[in-house]
Amino acid sequence: MAASRLALPTHLTPLTPAGEITVGEPGTYRLVLDTTAPPICTVRLTVPDILLQIISNQTAGSGEAPTLFLTVDHQAPRTKAEVLAKSLVRGTGSPTFKGLLRIAESATGCESYLRHDTLLLGDQARVHSWPALEILNNEVKCSHSATVRTIRDEDLAYIRSRGLTRKQAEEQIITSFFA
């Protein structure tokens, strides 16, 4: 897993995936979104001192075009959130990931980060990525990043030199992509 930018405690209260989630109690939370998650998900942080990590693992096989539109709405001061999103695309898959971090004018002292990484496998694979920010006050730390890449021969060479087949080496890299 990509290194967390928030100082997360060991215990995080799990949140149930839903189209609208309102977090109204201070605390530390984790939301995991997988292929069964609703396509539109809005998380509202309505009271101060919330720490939230969101993990999204999207997989698109041939002919599949899953969509996720995730919004994190910081409505209260000192709320902190981190989104770690991954998309794995095989064959003719074509997923869409939209991630919006919104920080209200009154929500000072917030931190919000989003990271979206895509691994394209197969020469017909395609991805739509839209990581967006709407920041309405300046006492914040906020950033996002997105990357798109594939598995290259040089990535496989090291693992294959340890005696794994090409297929096994690829599976290793995919496993570590989601790990």
Binding site: S94, E105, T108, T118, L120, L121, G122, D123, Q124, A125, R126, V127, H128, S129, W130, P131, A132, L133, E134, I135, L136, N137, N138, E139, V140, K141, C142, S143, H144, S145, A146, T147, V148, R149, T150
Partner: peptide
């Protein structure tokens, strides 16, 4: 200041596995 606003709306549409695409944005005071 606290009354101004900054948005970032990048769209990334890649149909090419042999590619290296990076986007990053940050907002600060």
């Amino acid at each position: 200041d606290g009354v101004s606003r900054s948005d970032t709306y990048p769209t990334i549409d890649i149909a090419q596995p042999d590619s290296t695409v990076e986007h990053e944005a940050s907002v600060s005071a």
